[in-house]
């Protein structure tokens, strides 16, 4: 998907419009109102790896972990799902830089990743097992579960209390998934995530222009006005 160049005026206009709408309605800024007022939903970038079930699962995870609020749009509007899809379809998903020769042993956590699965294979088996667990426990796949159940499942999953019946080790998959959500939120927009540099703006990271020799003193202990640019903006 061509990187939609950041259109400041459009962003400002929509921001102004949304705040005006909130004011006129006079209601507290409930999540739904915010969602509606937030920037129009970004057109889908399509999927090169995830099938419909998997895409729904990933969208639900990234939108739950990175909800929409005044700091940033929700995860899928920032393209974190697209980032994960492209990573899995690409070399990293196929096991680039991963030693994949047997024999295969479980080992202990301090010996790191030992599964005979490439990241793409782990996601495929992992999402199927996660959804199977959710259907067994909450009688619905993850993306159909209400927010409270999603949170309950994610907390259990991240703390090793979830076991995938004849699936991959649950926690190994969670650790990889969580790292990819973070990467999707803060890597350069080139990779499909961090669209409009929303992740960088949230924390004030100035992006690729980094000639700070003079700024060190000029901005010591002062807020640096970051209007981040990505690699594409300078290419």
């Amino acid at each position: 998907m061509k990187n939609v160049p950041f259109n400041r005026r459009a962003f400002l206009k929509s921001a102004v419009a949304s705040s005006a709408a909130a004011v006129s309605v006079g209601l507290p800024q409930s999540a739904q109102a915010q969602q509606k007022a937030a920037a129009p939903p970004t057109p889908s970038a399509g999927y090169a790896f995830l099938n419909p079930d998997e895409a729904a699962f990933i969208e639900a995870v990234v939108d739950h972990m990175v909800p929409a609020d005044e700091l940033s749009p929700k995860g899928s509007d920032m393209g974190i799902n697209t980032f994960i899809d492209r990573a899995l379809a690409g070399g990293w998903g196929k096991g680039d830089r991963l030693y994949m020769q047997g024999p295969w042993k479980q080992g202990v956590p301090s010996q790191g990743y030992q599964l005979p699965l490439t990241p793409a294979e782990l996601y495929r088996a992992g999402i199927a097992s996660a959804n199977a667990y959710c259907v067994k426990t909450y009688s619905k796949p993850f993306d159909k579960m209400p927010e409270t159940q999603r949170q309950e499942f994610l907390v259990a999953w991240s703390t090793g209390k979830v076991n995938f019946e004849n699936g991959p080790p649950a926690r190994v998959f969670f650790t990889m998934l969580y790292q990819n959500v973070i990467e999707g939120m803060f890597s350069d927009p080139l990779y499909g995530g961090n669209q409009n540099k929303a992740g960088w703006k949230m924390i004030g990271f100035p992006g690729v222009i980094a000639v700070n020799q003079q700024n060190i003193e000029k901005y010591r202990d002062k807020k640096f006005p970051a209007n981040p640019l990505g690699i594409a903006d300078m290419s």
Partner: peptide
């Protein structure tokens, strides 16, 4: 927390 609204707020607040 490792994700969610509170996590976003804390990340934005403390990064710098």
């Amino acid at each position: 927390p490792a994700w969610g609204k509170e996590w976003k707020a804390a990340t934005a607040k403390w990064y710098q």
